[in-house]
């Protein structure tokens, strides 16, 4: 089996994978980073969203081998260095932007991706950006509020 190496949340990791192993599988099963969730099989729900070289991707839609040599960031890498919640994470808690928590890692990663590109998104821009992330619990109302609050704080 081929070996794949990448940097995940700042740490260099490597492992053997099959050609068909998805990045999401490698993160969950190979690295035990189970914060990245699998909610569908058609790259629609976004629960598996991670950042690869700074861009949000659906890790169920990328082979592990395609991420060879890449910088990958997952939900486990979003807290502050001291372990406290990062600004976006804290905003989700403050504004009740999550309920069952299953879509949450993908939502946080998608929100970080948006705010990196647009520091002051409108409600419509936030909603449009979340088009590829499905939440069944919150009705998105508080997710939108959380992202607006994070944007305000990040300036």
């Amino acid at each position: 089996m081929p070996t794949v190496s990448m940097t995940v949340n700042g740490k260099t990791v490597s492992g053997e994978v099959e050609g068909r192993t998805l990045l999401s599988q490698f993160l969950r099963e190979g690295l035990s980073l189970t914060g990245t969730h699998i909610g569908c099989d058609t790259a629609q729900c976004g629960a598996c969203t991670v950042h690869v070289d700074g861009v949000a991707v659906k890790s169920c839609n990328m082979l592990a081998l395609e991420a060879d040599g890449a910088e990958v960031r997952t939900i486990e890498g979003m807290a502050n260095p001291d372990g406290s919640l990062g600004v976006i994470q804290a905003a989700f808690q403050e504004h009740h932007g999550l309920q069952c928590g299953f879509c949450t890692p993908g939502m946080v990663m998608a929100a970080a991706d948006l705010l990196a590109a647009n520091s002051a998104p409108s409600e419509a821009e936030i909603r449009a950006h979340l088009d590829g992330n499905i939440c069944r619990c919150t009705g998105y109302h508080n997710i939108v509020k959380s992202i607006q609050a994070a944007a305000a704080q990040l300036g």
């Binding site: 914060g35 699998i38 486990e76 979003m78 919640l85 808690q93 999550l98 928590g101």
Partner: peptide
């Protein structure tokens, strides 16, 4: 009060059934 379960869900530390091996 803010939800105490949120911290684990927001950091990827929730334990859903598929996370159990």
């Amino acid at each position: 009060p803010k939800r105490r379960e949120d911290v684990r869900f927001l950091t990827g530390n929730g334990q859903y059934t598929d996370d159990i091996n």
